[in-house]
C-alpha cells in the first residue's frame, strides 16, 4: 500500500465511522423486518410529515391515493378504493409497524398483497431501465411518509 492509498483508506474509514455514529442509512437489501415491524429508521435523518404528505400524493412516488382513501386530503379527487382507507392508521399501528408496511408490504401482508413494496429492489422482473436497482421511495422519503402516516390519528 502506498502512503497515498493508505491516507485515502484512513479518511474513508473515518467518514464511515462518523456516519455510523450519526446513524447509517440502511440499504433496501439490508432491511430486516421482524414480526411485521421495523424499529430502526432506514434513513439517517428523522422523517418530516409535511414532505411525507407530498410524497404520498406524488403520482411518481407514493401515489398512495390511487388505492387508498384518506379523509385528511379532501383536495385530492378520485381516490381509489382497492385498499382500506388510511383514516386513523396512525393510531392503529405503531411507528415500527407503519415503517414495515411502507418498506415492504409483502413481508407484512403476504406475497400476494396488491400494495407495492416501496423500499425493495430484489426479486422484481423486467423492471424498466431507469428504475433498475432503485426502490420506489428512497430512504428519506420512506421516513417522511411514515412521519405523515403518524399524523393520521382519527
Amino acid at each position: 500500500m502506498t502512503s497515498q492509498t493508505a491516507r485515502l483508506a484512513a479518511a474513508a474509514l473515518a467518514a464511515l465511522l462518523a456516519g455510523a455514529a450519526a446513524q447509517a442509512e440502511i440499504a433496501p437489501s439490508d432491511v430486516a423486518i421482524a414480526d411485521g415491524a421495523l424499529e430502526t429508521p432506514v434513513a439517517d435523518a428523522p422523517g418530516d410529515a409535511e414532505r411525507g404528505k407530498a410524497w404520498y400524493a406524488d403520482r411518481g412516488l407514493g401515489n398512495c391515493m390511487t388505492c387508498h382513501q384518506n379523509a385528511a386530503l379532501p383536495e385530492i379527487s378520485f381516490q381509489g378504493d382497492v385498499a382500506p382507507p388510511l383514516d386513523g392508521v396512525g393510531a392503529r399501528y405503531s411507528e415500527a409497524e407503519l415503517r414495515a408496511i411502507v418498506v415492504n408490504s409483502k413481508e407484512v401482508f403476504g406475497e400476494q398483497t396488491f400494495m407495492p413494496a416501496f423500499y425493495r429492489i430484489d426479486g422484481l422482473k423486467i423492471v424498466r431501465k431507469e428504475s433498475v436497482g432503485k426502490p420506489i421511495l428512497d430512504a428519506q422519503q420512506v421516513e417522511d411518509v411514515v412521519a405523515y402516516l403518524k399524523t393520521l390519528t382519527d
Binding site: T66, F78, G80, F114, L124, V127, R128
Partner: peptide, 25 residues
C-alpha cells in the same frame, strides 16, 4: 400471473383480484 416492473403487479393483480374496484379514476 407473472408480476412485473418496479410496482410488481401481474395482470391478475388488477383484472382478476380487483376488477370492479377503482384504481384512482
Amino acid at each position: 400471473y407473472t408480476r412485473t416492473g418496479q410496482l410488481d403487479f401481474a395482470c391478475a393483480s388488477c383484472h382478476e383480484a380487483n376488477s370492479g374496484m377503482m384504481l384512482r379514476a
